[in-house]
Design a binder for these strands. Structure first.
Length: 286
DNA sequence: CTTCTTGTTACTGA
DNA sequence: ATCAGTAACAAGAA
């Protein structure tokens, strides 16, 4: 489930590899993933190169030839972007060791070939991902749908207060809402609320200033830490060097239901909130 | 066989 | 208007 830290890791790796590298061939293996007509998609990319790669929330935008056109990719739940050159894996998303070592596989729906011999594979087990050539208008539309970036300088406590003050949602739904703060998914929502010591059922309008501050600080802390560890994956995650380095064993509540809370020893509970599996500790999340 | 997994959008009802 | 809940999409794990 790529969330902000996973997407950020992929973008940072790809930036070092494919910027300004000429695209020599496009292989569409599953058309339904590509939301353009095949010829439109192909001609938009063929003999062009990516001048910049931008992450916004969980979206990735590959700017084409310094123009206002972009290749937009959203990995949704099981999308992967794997870069290979000379069979060496450089960047991975939600990866699966047994498959990524031998690409393409049956989950490979798109291959972008570069003139220097490198290849970028888009894999997606559940085929929910979105790949599309977009213009400036659509770029701005998607951008406008995203809330504030938790890593940006303008994400101050003052700004966070402004966003949260008029909301009455439960805090779990608040953190999952991409229009408010963008990039946080189910795993990091649970981790952030555990870190902040706040019960996910709490309504935002019931939170006091101190609790809001804790949540604000935990967002920044957890997201930064997860990026440092190159993200979380429950399957075999491969980092830029093909190693497993990940955030999985740093998780404190997600996936730990039924186990003892690392902070107070109570049993971690699991419920359903905002349509998502939600893990929390009743003992120390008030 | 059923149930569960999740990002996003669409829809319903309160 | 705002919010909660659910379905839909899909494939695989348990």
């Amino acid at each position: 489930m790529p969330e902000l830290p996973e997407v950020e890791t992929i973008v940072n790796d790809l930036k070092q590899k494919i910027i300004n590298k000429k695209i020599s061939k496009i292989n569409i293996r599953l058309q339904k993933i590509i939301k353009n007509k095949p010829n439109v998609f192909r001609s938009a990319l063929l003999n062009k190169s990516f001048s910049q790669i931008i992450r916004r929330g969980k979206y990735i935008f590959f700017q084409i030839n310094n123009s206002k056109k972009y290749l937009m990719i959203h990995l949704r739940m099981t999308g992967q972007l794997i870069y290979q050159k000379d069979n060496k894996i450089i960047a991975g998303g939600h990866s699966d060791r047994k498959n990524t070592l031998n690409l393409p596989n049956k989950q490979t729906h798109l291959i972008i070939y570069f003139q220097n011999g490198a290849q970028l594979f888009y894999n997606d087990q559940r085929q929910f991902g979105v790949v599309k050539i977009i213009d400036e208008i659509e770029f701005n539309l998607i951008d406008a749908r995203q809330g504030i970036e938790p890593l940006n300088k303008d994400f101050t406590f003052k700004q966070f207060e402004k966003i949260i003050q008029n909301k009455k949602k439960n805090i779990k739904a608040f953190l999952l809402d991409q229009k408010l703060v963008t990039g946080i998914g189910n795993i990091y929502t649970d981790e952030i609320l555990f870190d902040a010591g706040v019960n996910p059922h709490r309504r935002t309008n019931d939170l006091n200033q101190n609790e809001r501050k804790k949540i604000y600080l935990s967002i920044k802390k957890i997201i930064k830490k997860a990026i440092k560890y190159r993200g979380t994956t429950f399957n075999d995650y491969l980092d830029a060097q093909g190693n497993q380095g990940n955030f999985l064993n740093k998780l404190k509540v997600y996936g730990r239901d039924g186990e003892k809370c690392l902070r107070c020893g109570d049993i971690i509970l699991k419920t359903r909130l905002a349509g998502r599996g939600t893990r929390y500790c009743e003992g120390c999340q008030k």
